[in-house]
């Protein structure tokens, strides 16, 4: 009895995580595992399952043109959007990190798009802005440029979707801003005394010191970018010639219009594995470029 009581007392904290544990097991682990299971079958919600263990779904992801293109497009999208977003965010944060009047106003202006951006309303707005008669093309026409046909040109449609996300750099910017504020001024002063120019200061002091935050933003934005759905679904529905069919859209189409659960699960898993690889690479590469304040270096 005493031992039990002691055990209970020692592990009382466990009680607090029980809700999470239930949630994890029921809503995350179980679906995760069953998704893996389904990916090896040809389970169709209406036709049922005919084949047992089969690798066909996975093979298809890399051979069927539509699927392979979706994979490539997702990559293109992620590696176009995330760097652009981070660069903008850091750039603006850097400029904002200055005792200017109205910093708060600017901060709000840059942040509002993030708040609204994921909504259907904004996707609709984007449609209005980028179609052939829309604002963007009219604007360019004013200065004599024949802007591309974003809605119908496969080469440009993805950029339009990307811009929607990059426009929402506010959240990343705010994080960078907080990080920049945390960089001690002493360092800048010391560098200045030594004759370092502003640019040099930025690259040698600022950047290295905020690498943890860069890392954090990089990983979270990457995860988000790989899952993009609203934009492509509402604005282009997969786009001209499938040029904006991201993996998540493909999974949705297969699962909820085709009811091909097996195929959709395999596609989702491929996406997941690739994302995991990138995340792990990022984590592993940390020690080479991320500088934590409590490191010995």
């Amino acid at each position: 009895m005493n031992k039990l009581k002691k055990f209970g007392k020692k592990n009382i904290g466990f009680i607090f995580i029980i809700p999470w544990l239930i949630g994890f097991l029921v809503f995350k682990l179980y679906p995760f595992m069953s998704s893996l299971y389904y990916s090896f079958t040809d389970y169709n919600l209406f036709a049922g399952m005919t084949e047992g263990f089969t690798l066909q779904n996975y093979k298809d992801v890399f051979t069927v043109p539509v699927e392979l293109t979706a994979l490539k497009t997702t990559f293109k999208y992620a590696f176009m959007t995330v760097p652009m977003k981070l660069v903008f965010a850091l750039f603006i944060a850097y400029i904002l990190n200055f005792k200017l009047k109205g910093v708060n106003l600017f901060r709000t202006i840059y942040y509002v798009p993030s708040i609204l951006g994921g909504s259907v309303a904004i996707a609709v707005l984007w449609k209005a802005l980028f179609n052939d008669n829309g604002l963007i093309r009219s604007g360019f026409a004013l200065i004599g440029i024949d802007a591309p046909h974003f809605m119908s040109d496969p080469k440009w449609a993805l950029l339009m979707i990307s811009i929607l996300r990059v426009w929402q750099f506010g959240s990343a910017m705010v994080v960078f801003l907080a990080a920049l504020k945390g960089v001690s001024q002493d360092l800048y002063e010391a560098a200045a005394i030594d004759g370092a120019s502003k640019t040099r200061q930025f690259f040698s002091i600022t950047l290295p010191l905020i690498t943890p935050v860069v890392f954090y933003n990089l990983v979270t934005q990457l995860v988000q970018a790989f899952q993009e759905f609203n934009g492509p679904y509402i604005i282009t529905r997969g786009g001209p010639l499938g040029s904006t069919t991201l993996m998540s859209l493909l999974v949705y189409n297969n699962a909820f219009t085709g009811y091909d659960m097996g195929k959709a699960s395999a596609q989702a898993w491929v996406l997941f594995v690739i994302l995991m690889i990138f995340t792990m690479i990022s984590f592993w590469s940390q020690k080479h470029w991320v500088y934590y304040a409590d490191d010995e270096n």
């Binding site: 994890f24 679906p31 995991m276």
Partner: peptide
């Protein structure tokens, strides 16, 4: 495990969660 969930894309869970 909990931290790992941060990186689990919802995409993977949509289909089986729907069936669940």
């Amino acid at each position: 495990l909990m931290m790992a969930m941060l990186f689990l894309p919802q995409v993977v869970l949509n289909v089986p969660q729907y069936m669940l």
